[in-house]
């Protein structure tokens, strides 16, 4: 992590961010994986995951994230998420119908249950999390390009 006092916000914000950002990311992952049992799911979890990165960028300056994840990589991952969701939906064709849940449903209220729904949640969280991050990156890069001119 870049610990440069020139970029980003004050020391207090940076310290608090360092303490909380991991928890936010973990909470997002929990929401995604537990989405078929409790409120939440792919979309809400994906937004929380994306917000943890946005939080980092706000506190430490945009280079923290842009040096790790370029915009191209983000949009590639986003396409992969969309293709994954579409292919999970298309798996249903083997059972006879589009979007059919053909995997084993398992016991209710167990972590490994509900067939394709957890898989769809994963795909959606990839799509939404990276997609939101890509939107934010695009706006930040657009803003940066304007200042340089």
């Amino acid at each position: 992590m870049i610990d440069n006092s020139k970029t980003g916000m004050s020391l207090i914000v940076k310290t608090i961010t360092r303490l909380t950002v991991g928890l936010i990311l973990l909470f997002g992952i929990y929401i995604v994986l537990h989405g078929h049992l409790s409120p939440g799911g792919g979309f809400a979890g994906g937004v929380i995951i994306a917000l943890s990165f946005v939080h980092l960028m706000l506190a430490f300056g945009k280079e923290v994230v842009t040096s790790k994840i370029s915009k191209n990589l983000a949009s590639n991952l986003e396409s992969i998420g969309a293709l994954m969701f579409l292919s999970i939906a298309a798996i249903g064709f083997f059972g006879g119908s589009f979007f059919l849940n053909i995997l084993k449903k398992g016991e209710p209220f167990e972590l490994f249950s509900a067939g394709t729904i957890p898989l769809s949640n994963l795909a959606i969280s990839l799509k939404v999390g990276i997609g939101l991050l890509a939107i934010f990156l695009a706006l930040v890069i657009l803003e940066g390009a304007k200042k340089e001119r």
Binding site: S79, I80, A82, L83, L86
Partner: peptide, 9 residues
């Protein structure tokens, strides 16, 4: 839908 994301990928 598939061709859209496939082409973008």
């Amino acid at each position: 839908l598939f061709s859209a994301f496939f082409i973008s990928f």
